[in-house]
Computed example of a mutant assay.
Amino acid sequence: MGNDEKTKRVVFVTVGTTCFDALVKSVNSDSVKQALFEKGYTHLLIQMGRGSYLPTKSEGDDGLLAVDYFTFSSSIADHLRSASLVISHAGSGSIFETLRLGKPLIVVVNEDLMDNHQSELAEELADRKHLYCASPQTLHQTIGDMNLSSLLPYTPGDATPVAKHINRFLGFPDD
């Protein structure tokens, strides 16, 4: 292994089954790629779902991140497991799966969704220091400022207060 063989540190971006071009455009921007590179990440793998915006593939030999993308995969869990950092849409499935695997997570809220209770969940978990929350516009800033050692592990048993909060928000009575 030569001196230039850096440890592979993959950032996995997932939009689930949705179309979230704003997130894909954001992670494909030079400012976000630069911020990730400065944090020591080497690879960017983007799952772009139904989106129509195609990121720029790169081998990473330009001294920046290697970038690859795909639309759907049956092995999202494998990608999550091998990631050093996950950047996800605000779908609760993606959020809880990533937290269950103990991966650092930045949730990017889709501001184009009008009725967005997903952002409530992300913001609640961010307040509890389990993840970072960003918008496509603030993502590069969030990456630049993040300190992963300040994140707290999420234990699934902690869900009750979060579930109560969400149920209250959705108008269900406390049981």
Rank of each mutant, 00 (worst) to 15 (best):
I166T: 03
T155G: 00
E97H: 08
Q141L: 10
M114D: 12
K33A: 03
A90P: 09
V15Y: 09
L64G: 12
T138I: 00
L65E: 07
N28L: 03
V27G: 08
T56H: 15
N3Y: 10
A163C: 10
H165V: 00
L139W: 05
R81I: 01
A35N: 09
L105P: 10
G16K: 00
V162M: 07
F169V: 07
Y154H: 10
F70W: 05
V15H: 07
A90W: 04
V86H: 02
A159N: 12
N116Y: 13
S31D: 15
Y41K: 03
G51E: 11
L152N: 13
S58E: 07
G2W: 08
S73K: 06
G144Q: 15
G93R: 06
N116I: 00
F96E: 04
G51N: 14
E97S: 14
L36M: 03
T14E: 08
L54G: 00
H89N: 11
T138S: 15
A90V: 05
V10S: 04
T7C: 07
V11T: 12
T98N: 06
D175Q: 12
L152Q: 15
S84N: 13
G16C: 02
N3R: 14
E5L: 09
G93E: 05
E124G: 01
L44M: 02
F72H: 15
D68S: 14
N147D: 15
I95Y: 01
R81G: 02
M1P: 15
R50L: 08
L131D: 06
E123H: 12
F70I: 10
T42R: 02
M146G: 08
R50Y: 02
L113R: 07
M48A: 08
V13W: 09
L99I: 04
P153R: 09
V108W: 05
D4V: 00
S94L: 05
K25I: 01
F12I: 01
S94N: 15
E111S: 13
L101F: 05
D175N: 14
H117P: 12
R100A: 14
A77Q: 15
S94H: 06
L148V: 14
P104R: 09
P55Y: 10
E38M: 09
F70H: 10
E97K: 12
V24L: 06
G144A: 14
H79S: 11
V27M: 07
F37I: 03
N28T: 04
P153N: 08
